[in-house]
Amino acid sequence: MAFPAVAVYSFLYLYPAIQNLLYATERWDGVTKPEQVGFHNFAHLATDDDLFMKIVGNNIRFTLIVVIFQTAFSLLFATFLLKNTKTTILLRVIYFFPTILSSVSVGLIWTFLYNPNFGFINASFKAIGLDGLALNWLGDTRYSLYAIAVTQVWFHTGQMVIIYVAGLQQIPADLYEAAEVDGASRWQQFKSITWPMALPTTAVVVAYTTIQSFRAFDLVYSMTQGGPLNSSDLIVTSIYNTAFASFKYGYASAQSVVLILVVLFVTWLQRRTLRIDYGVK
């Protein structure tokens, strides 16, 4: 029964992934014949490419911020919006709304909001007297990455809220009723009922957000193109530029192999620290 899935997946996912490993051992500009260079690309990445190290660092910071805030916000909002009333449904509809926009639209809108000269965000800060917070969001190496992370959280929190609501609604209501009778506070209820019962959902949310953050491309591409000075460059934008703008296909493939390793490591770390069971029960 799994045959069609396995076939497509093998041909267009696993096979390219293996191909990637082969490319990663070559020096190739896409025009002339590829040249075998063994582990040179990896050696160069590891020892002689400060920029790529910086980009990996960027991506890890980006992922941490997005995973923490997106998961926390969506869990919080989901607990607020758990009951099906007119208001909660309306709010869920509103929160989910950004998800249906294309990422290019979101990038364009937020580029406008962040504009240091006439953007809405700085105008609002100035209007309430917080001139000090009117920063050069996308144009300053110190803020660009975080500015994009905020956009990413804005973009996808609604989606995670829906997943959490679905998960939390499966928790039997009598658990909370019993806790209430016992006089448990909201925090105690959250700690002893919601959190453990929602763990499987959290597993999905965290795993999904992690992958989403490591494959982030669209927002960076449409907001800063990685700049200024690569301060908002992420691994996929780097792969993309190395391959298609600098024509180093082999070197870019080596970067994708590193991306895989980083993602595997981070997922493993998450499993350990959160003790989330991804596997079959």
């Binding site: 504009n115 000269n117 050069n136 144009g139 300053d140 200024p228």
Partner: peptide, 12 residues
């Protein structure tokens, strides 16, 4: 140059 010139783009 204008203030915050590194955020000053082709639109502005």
């Amino acid at each position: 140059f204008p203030a915050n010139v590194t955020g000053y783009n082709d639109t502005v």
